[in-house]
């Protein structure tokens, strides 16, 4: 099993992701340079947080045109698991691989703090090891995390169970006080119609070790590894 972490110019959470996957989970990890048009030999792709291309034009917009993105799109189209964290989520939105768009936070502030999110769907490789309604605690760090989708699109996303996470309080209640950025219906993460592409604003890689105050984020990566292993078992068997 080999996991790939894409490195864009301006990514700044790429090494955190590599560290967690390689040293905490003990997996084989390869860094994928954005200028490389191929991603052969990986079983999953992570688009990390940061400010790819300085967030010029719009967050994630220029990164979405990177040479590597057609390969990431093809990998996703073939069912490969793709995870976008924070800026990686914004890249997936701009690339049209996930529905919706990001606006600036409604509070006019860069939000950098721990939040709670509730698992809304376990149909993604990254959440299938969790349980619906489970509350996770991990940090956010963004200025443009105000998730938006026009009404018809929002209805489609919700009806087709593409909402993966919502901001909630410590008890799992989805209330406006727990919404850090103005996201529609407290949406913190969405997945593709097939479920194999997931984007979320909170940083699971920053909540994967006891020393960081929470290990809840590690469950997403462990879920991915278990999902990949179960598929391998089926193929071999």
């Amino acid at each position: 099993m080999r996991l790939g972490v894409v490195v864009f110019p301006g990514s700044n959470c790429d090494r955190d992701c590599v560290h967690v996957l390689r040293h905490v989970l003990g997996r084989d990890v390869v860094e994928l340079w954005h200028g490389d048009p191929a991603i052969e030999g990986v079983d999953a792709v992570v688009l990390p947080g940061g400010f790819a291309y300085g967030d010029y034009l719009r967050a994630g917009a220029v990164a979405a045109t990177s040479p590597i993105m057609p390969a990431v799109r093809a990998f996703a189209a073939s069912g490969g698991p793709v995870l976008g964290i924070c800026n990686g989520f914004q890249v997936l939105l701009e690339a049209g691989m996930l529905p919706g768009a990001m606006l600036r936070n409604h509070v006019l502030k860069f939000q950098c703090k721990p939040v709670h999110i509730r698992v809304e769907s376990t149909r993604t490789p990254f959440t299938h090891g969790l349980r619906e309604g489970q509350v996770l605690r991990m940090p956010i760090a963004h200025g443009e995390g105000n998730y938006f989708a026009p009404d018809p699109l929002l209805a489609t996303i919700q009806e087709s169970e593409q909402v993966a996470f919502r901001y909630c309080d410590a008890h799992g209640r989805v209330v406006s006080e727990a919404n850090p950025n103005g996201s529609l219906n407290n949406i913190a993460g969405v997945c593709s119609p097939q479920g194999n592409v997931l984007g979320l604003m909170p940083h699971p890689e920053r909540a994967s070790e006891e020393v960081l105050g929470s290990t809840d984020g590690r469950m997403l990566f462990e879920s991915l590894v278990a999902w990949l292993e179960s598929r391998r078992a089926v193929v071999v068997g």
């Binding site: 600036r104 006019l108 938006f148």
Partner: peptide, 13 residues
């Protein structure tokens, strides 16, 4: 420009 009706937080500031 942002569409009419879309929150413009920077504009408000």
């Amino acid at each position: 420009t942002l569409k009419p009706g879309i929150l413009d937080a920077a504009g408000q500031a």
